[in-house]
Lab assay of single mutants.
Amino acid sequence: MSIQHFRVALIPFFAAFCLPVFAHPETLVKVKDAEDQLGARVGYIELDLNSGKILESFRPEERFPMMSTFKVLLCGAVLSRVDAGQEQLGRRIHYSQNDLVEYSPVTEKHLTDGMTVRELCSAAITMSDNTAANLLLTTIGGPKELTAFLHNMGDHVTRLDRWEPELNEAIPNDERDTTMPAAMATTLRKLLTGELLTLASRQQLIDWMEADKVAGPLLRSALPAGWFIADKSGAGERGSRGIIAALGPDGKPSRIVVIYTTGSQATMDERNRQIAEIGASLIKHW
């Protein structure tokens, strides 16, 4: 067993022997301040990774656009098919120029040779490549099948209805392509620590998230040296922004954090800054 596999296998073990965790309302004060600064709703939840206990939450059962955070769930569904012998990570998928959609920095470079399922998941999570996500959605049967996968996990809230990039439209009061912070946090925890996926697939999923290259201005910008984070960000229309993450000190994750916002007129930089400040408060009061 590799060191990384050992780390993920012992996530519940280490967490069980940690000192009790206590909620700190100071972080919620910052979440509410972010709402004021952005002029928009902000949803927040913080779960203990081992027990699933909610440590703090704000608007945990209000719907927010998922945006690209759905790509972690998508690759979880792909990995479940791999575990069941219905898919192979090494299978190569070929596609054409007509398949390319807006923001496809990886797939646009491989029109000639195609990409493997493993490479597509890596591109979808680490670079948020939209064509990679659409190609992977095709392998599982489309958005409705991802929703069905989530329902089978016990998540009857999260739903995907459309493809990239239309799913980022974020129309107010439109339930399409949305989740709730509580539902997303619980589902992410199941994917990373539950028995739904094999140990190898859980490790692969967290490795992809740990290698995320496009979430630097968010929670990662607030992390002290030595902290662990595996995350996936999302951005959408109407001032929408979000991030889902597993993080913790001492090089291992111990909490799940989900943050979503929508309806702001603020710039992307300002949305990023507010999420980073929430992260800084979380870490300060850990």
Rank of each mutant, 00 (worst) to 15 (best):
R92Y: 11
A185V: 07
E145S: 13
D113W: 09
E62K: 05
G194H: 11
P60D: 15
V106M: 13
I283A: 09
C75P: 01
K144W: 09
R273G: 11
V78R: 02
H156Y: 15
R189F: 15
T147C: 09
L111Y: 13
Y44S: 02
Q86D: 15
A222P: 10
Y95E: 03
L282T: 09
E108N: 14
G141R: 06
S68A: 00
T158C: 04
S264T: 12
H94C: 08
L247D: 03
A230S: 05
Q37F: 14
G76P: 00
A246T: 12
T139S: 15
I256A: 06
R91I: 05
N173V: 09
L160R: 00
I206M: 13
M209T: 00
V101Q: 09
V29S: 15
L192T: 08
T69N: 00
K284F: 10
E56G: 12
E145V: 11
M127H: 08
D207H: 13
E195G: 13
V106K: 07
G43C: 03
D155L: 00
A182Q: 14
L38K: 05
T69I: 05
D83S: 07
H285L: 09
A84P: 04
G142I: 04
A170R: 08
V78E: 02
H156C: 11
V82L: 06
N98V: 15
P253S: 10
G90Y: 11
E195W: 08
G239E: 04
Q265A: 14
T178A: 05
Q86I: 14
K30F: 03
L199D: 12
E164P: 00
S281L: 10
I125Y: 01
I54D: 06
E169L: 11
L218Q: 02
I171C: 15
N50W: 12
I229H: 00
I275A: 04
G248D: 02
H285R: 11
E119H: 08
A200H: 12
L100S: 05
H110K: 11
N50V: 12
M209Y: 01
Y260E: 00
P224I: 02
A77V: 12
A84R: 13
L219G: 01
S128C: 04
H151N: 15
Q88N: 14
D83R: 04
A211V: 08
L205T: 02
A132Q: 03
R92K: 15
G114E: 04
A185F: 01
H285C: 10
L49N: 05
R81Y: 08
V29Q: 14
A222W: 07
G141S: 07
N168L: 01
Q203L: 10
D269H: 13
A235Y: 00
A148H: 12
I256K: 00
S254T: 14
D129R: 00
L199C: 15
L28T: 09
T126Q: 09
S122F: 12
S57A: 12
M127C: 09
I45A: 14
T193V: 13
T186W: 15
D212C: 03
G39R: 13
G39T: 10
T186R: 15
L192C: 08
L100N: 04
E237P: 14
H110F: 14
L120R: 00
A40D: 04
D36G: 15
I125C: 08
Y260A: 03
E62L: 06
G251L: 11
P249K: 15
D207S: 15
L135M: 10
E169S: 12
T112M: 14
A225G: 12
G52K: 05
G194A: 12
M66R: 01
P217W: 06
M268D: 07
E210H: 10
S122V: 12
L55C: 07
E210D: 09
N152A: 14
V117P: 05
I93A: 05
D36L: 14
L55T: 08
T107H: 01
K30W: 03
D207W: 12
L218N: 03
K53E: 14
L55K: 08
L120Y: 00
M184V: 09
S80E: 15
L150V: 11
D269A: 13
A170E: 07
N152L: 13
E166K: 12
D212G: 07
L137I: 10
E26V: 11
D212V: 05
K32R: 15
H156T: 15
V78Q: 04
G226F: 06
E62R: 05
V106F: 08
L137K: 00
G114K: 04
W163A: 09
H156E: 12
G114C: 05
L120D: 02
Q204F: 08
I93P: 02
V106P: 03
D177R: 01
M127D: 08
D212A: 06
N173S: 12
G279F: 05
R189S: 13
L111F: 11
N134M: 03
S104H: 05
G39V: 10
L111M: 12
G216M: 09
D177T: 00
L120W: 00
E102R: 11
G52P: 05
A211M: 15
R255S: 01
I45H: 04
T27M: 05
P172F: 10
G43A: 08
T116V: 06
F149W: 14
S57C: 07
T69S: 06
E61V: 11
E108F: 10
V214M: 09
L160V: 12
D212E: 05
Y95D: 04
G114S: 05
G142V: 03
I278A: 03
Q97M: 12
I229D: 00
R118L: 13
M209W: 02
D177V: 01
W208A: 04
E166M: 15
S128K: 02
L28E: 06
G39L: 11
A40F: 04
Q97S: 14
N272W: 03
P253E: 08
L135R: 04
T126H: 06
I206N: 08
G85I: 06
K252G: 12
S201E: 00
K232V: 01
D250L: 12
Q97I: 13
A235D: 02
T107D: 01
Y103I: 04
R41E: 05
L160Y: 02
L160C: 10
E61W: 12
K32G: 09
T187M: 08
V214H: 05
D48N: 07
S221G: 09
A40R: 03
R241Q: 06
G236W: 00
T262A: 10
G239T: 03
I244R: 02
D155N: 05
F228W: 10
Q274G: 09
W286C: 00
E270S: 12
A215P: 05
A276Y: 11
M180C: 14
L137M: 11
P172M: 11
T147F: 00
E169I: 10
E195L: 07
N50T: 14
A276Q: 11
F149L: 10
A124L: 03
T193R: 15
A123F: 02
F228V: 08
G234H: 00
H285V: 08
L205R: 01
E166L: 12
V214E: 04
N98M: 13
A133Q: 01
I275G: 01
A276M: 11
V29E: 15
G52D: 07
A183S: 14
L120G: 03
T126E: 14
L160H: 07
L38G: 07
T112V: 13
Q37R: 15
P105K: 06
A266P: 06
W163D: 08
E26D: 11
D33C: 11
R271I: 10
L219I: 13
I229Y: 02
G142S: 07
L167N: 04
L188Q: 00
R59M: 03
A235W: 03
N272I: 04
L79M: 12
T147P: 04
T193A: 13
S51K: 09
E119C: 04
W286H: 05
G90K: 12
L197K: 07
E277R: 11
P172G: 09
L74R: 00
A185K: 00
R41Y: 08
G239Y: 02
T198H: 11
A124P: 03
T178S: 10
L160A: 10
T267Y: 08
R271L: 14
S281E: 14
I54M: 14
V78S: 02
A245N: 01
G236D: 04
W208N: 02
E108M: 13
I229V: 09
G85V: 06
E119K: 06
D269L: 11
E102D: 15
E210M: 12
G52V: 04
A235M: 06
K213N: 10
E35P: 00
L218C: 04
D212N: 07
G141P: 03
P249Q: 11
E35M: 04
R63F: 07
D129K: 01
G76N: 00
Q265H: 14
V214W: 06
A40S: 11
G234Q: 02
I244Q: 01
R255G: 03
G248I: 02
L191V: 10
G226T: 12
S57I: 07
R241H: 06
N50M: 15
T186G: 15
D99R: 07
